[in-house]
């Protein structure tokens, strides 16, 4: 009886140890076209991060967080043009629960050998405390540093 109890405990411990390795979170892919140009030389990479939500207005309210993913791209000649596939690792049971998403554009700068990232909006918005003159937008150009909507 006692041996059976010990065996049961060992089996339970084994199950607990194995479970995290076998339980894989579902991946939700978000494809995002990206077009950037005219960046200052200090920008070496860019990144797009996406978050998904179970609330219909989660992309603005941040409620119902359901997962997060990020992908980087290389900036050459101050530009990048391409479509990125952002793998979002879900923290909810199923993608069917998702109702909204938000993706944000980041620029990664080389500052004295250190990589510093900040959102394109913060760097290029004159009203932002993080605004930098070298990131000012071309006159009349379209800017979209964040996109979001319903799923």
């Amino acid at each position: 009886m006692r041996a059976a109890g010990v065996l049961g405990a060992v089996a339970l411990l084994g199950a607990v140890c194995v479970a995290p390795a076998t339980a894989r979170a579902e991946i939700f892919t978000i494809e995002t076209p990206v077009s950037v140009k005219g960046l200052p030389p200090e920008v070496i990479d860019g990144a797009v991060t996406c978050a998904v939500f179970t609330e219909p207005d989660g992309n603005s309210s941040n409620l119902g967080y359901g997962g997060f993913g990020s992908v980087q791209f290389t900036v050459k000649g101050g530009a990048f043009l391409g479509r990125l596939r952002v793998p979002v690792q879900l923290d909810v049971a199923s993608a069917s629960l998702l109702r909204s998403y938000r993706c944000t554009l980041y620029f990664i700068r080389n500052v004295g050998g250190e990589r510093k990232s900040a959102t394109a909006a913060r760097l290029s918005d004159p009203r932002s405390p993080d605004y930098r003159e070298e990131f000012r937008r071309a006159r009349g150009s379209r800017f979209a540093g964040e996109v979001g909507g319903s799923l």
Partner: peptide
């Protein structure tokens, strides 16, 4: 599951 978003875009003033 997959979704395609609108374009993220930025045009700065640096000429390369």
């Amino acid at each position: 599951p997959r979704v395609t978003t609108e374009e993220l875009t930025f045009t700065g003033v640096h000429n390369w």
